[in-house]
Amino acid sequence: RTVITEEFKVPDKMVGFIIGRGGEQISRIQAESGCKIQIASESSGIPERPCVLTGTPESIEQAKRLLGQIVDRCRN
């Protein structure tokens, strides 16, 4: 099985929602997708915060879908 790493950007102001209380939301996304997610600790003042996704191509797609759902929910 091929493990790859891909960068994905999330809106900086939504990082708190993505991580969740005590990290529970990000842990759930990682468990559900099987993908490791590392969010940069600093956005360096830019509106997007880079995340590094590591896993199989399928797990990365699943993680991006779950992250996208959270971002959409927070935008509305």
Rank of each mutant, 00 (worst) to 15 (best):
I29S: 01
A40P: 13
S33V: 03
E61N: 09
T56N: 07
G34Q: 10
V15E: 04
V15K: 06
I39S: 02
T2P: 07
I19V: 12
V71E: 09
E58F: 06
C51I: 08
K64G: 01
S43I: 15
I37K: 01
S59K: 04
V71G: 07
S33M: 01
A31G: 10
K64R: 07
C35Y: 01
L53E: 00
E7Q: 09
I18P: 04
V15Y: 05
S27L: 08
I18N: 02
R49M: 04
S41F: 04
A40I: 12
L67R: 00
T56G: 03
R49L: 04
E32M: 11
K9L: 13
E58Y: 05
K9V: 11
R21V: 10
F8C: 02
G23P: 03
I46L: 15
R75P: 13
K9Q: 14
A63T: 02
V15L: 10
S59D: 07
C74W: 13
E42F: 07
Q62L: 11
G16K: 15
G34C: 03
V3N: 15
G45C: 07
I4S: 05
E7Y: 12
E61H: 12
V10F: 10
I4R: 09
V52Y: 06
A40V: 07
I46G: 14
G55R: 00
Q25I: 06
Q62E: 13
V71F: 07
K64I: 03
G68E: 12
I37T: 02
Q25F: 07
V52R: 09
P47Q: 09
C35Q: 01
E48I: 04
Q38C: 10
G16W: 03
R21A: 14
Q38E: 13
G23T: 07
E42Y: 08
E58Q: 09
E61C: 08
F17C: 08
I60H: 01
K13V: 03
I26H: 05
E58P: 06
T54Q: 13
R49A: 04
E6I: 06
L53S: 00
T54E: 09
D72K: 11
G20Q: 06
A40R: 14
G23Q: 11
R49D: 03
D12S: 12
R49Q: 08
I60K: 01
N76D: 15
K64H: 02
K36V: 07
E42Q: 12
I19N: 14
I70D: 03
G68Q: 08
G16I: 04
I37C: 03
Q25G: 10
Q62R: 11
E42I: 05
S33T: 09
G16E: 14
K64W: 01
S33L: 02
E32G: 03
Q25M: 12
R75F: 14
E7I: 11
A40N: 08
L67E: 01
P11K: 02
E42V: 11
R65Y: 11
S43H: 06
P57E: 11
L67W: 00
D12H: 05
L66V: 06
G55W: 00
P50A: 11
A63Q: 00
M14H: 08
E61S: 12
K13D: 08
D12N: 14
G22K: 14
A63S: 02
V52S: 14
A63M: 02
I18C: 05
I19F: 09
R28C: 04
S44Y: 08
G23M: 08
S59T: 06
I26Q: 04
K36H: 14
L53R: 00
M14C: 09
S33H: 01
A31H: 15
I70T: 15
M14V: 04
S43D: 12
S59Q: 13
M14I: 02
R1L: 08
E24P: 03
V15T: 05
I26N: 01
E58A: 12
G22C: 10
A63I: 02
I4A: 06
V15F: 09
K9F: 12
E61Y: 07
R1Y: 06
I29H: 01
G22E: 11
I18S: 03
Q30F: 02
L66Q: 09
K36Y: 05
Q62H: 13
C74A: 15
D72R: 11
T56L: 05
F8Q: 02
R28W: 06
M14D: 06
T5W: 04
A63R: 00
E61V: 11
G20L: 02
E42L: 08
L66K: 09
Q25C: 13
T54C: 04
S43M: 08
G22V: 04
G22L: 05
E58W: 04
C35F: 00
A31M: 09
V15P: 02
S33I: 02
R65W: 09
R73V: 12
E6H: 08
L53F: 02
K13A: 10
K13Y: 15
A40E: 15
L67I: 05
N76Y: 12
S41A: 12
M14A: 04
E6S: 11
P57D: 04
L53Y: 00
T54W: 03
N76R: 15
L53H: 00
V71L: 07
C51P: 01
K9A: 14
I19L: 13
Q62S: 13
T2D: 09
Q69L: 10
L66P: 00
A31Q: 14
T54R: 13
V15G: 05
E7S: 13
I26W: 04
S44H: 13
P50L: 11
C51H: 02
R28L: 05
I60M: 02
I70V: 15
T2H: 10
I29Q: 01
C35H: 01
E48V: 06
V15Q: 04
P47I: 13
D72E: 14
E48Q: 06
G22N: 14
Q38T: 11
R1E: 09
Q62G: 10
F17Q: 12
G34F: 02
D12F: 04
G20T: 03
R1K: 14
I29K: 01
Q38W: 06
S41L: 09
S33N: 01
A31C: 12
P57F: 07
R1C: 15
C51F: 14
Q30V: 05
I39Y: 02
N76M: 14
G22R: 13
F8A: 04
V3I: 15
F8D: 03
E42T: 11
G55C: 00
E61W: 06
T56F: 04
T2M: 12
V3H: 05
L53Q: 00
T5R: 09
E24L: 06
E24V: 12
P11I: 02
I46T: 15
T54A: 06
I29Y: 01
T56Q: 06
G16F: 03
V10C: 06
R1F: 10
P11T: 05
C35L: 01
R65D: 12
I60Y: 00
I4N: 08
K9C: 10
R73I: 05
V71R: 05
G45R: 10
S27G: 14
R65I: 15
I70E: 14
E58G: 11
V10Q: 01
V71I: 13
R49Y: 03
I26V: 13
L66N: 03
C35P: 01
Q25K: 12
A31D: 13
P47R: 09
E7D: 13
C35D: 01
E61Q: 13
V3F: 09
I37R: 01
G22F: 07
S27E: 13
L67Y: 00
K13Q: 13
A40C: 13
S27V: 07
V15D: 02
E48K: 08
L67F: 02
I39C: 05
T54K: 12
V52E: 09
L67A: 00
K36E: 13
L53D: 00
R49H: 09
S59Y: 01
C74S: 13
T2I: 15
P57K: 14
I46N: 15
F8L: 07
D12R: 07
R75H: 14
R65H: 07
R28P: 01
A63C: 12
D72H: 13
I37E: 01
D72Y: 06
P57W: 09
G45S: 10
C35S: 03
K64S: 02
R65P: 01
L66T: 07
L67K: 00
I39Q: 02
D72I: 03
Q38R: 10
F17R: 13
S41C: 12
V52A: 12
R75Y: 04
I46Y: 09
S33P: 01
I70G: 03
I60E: 00
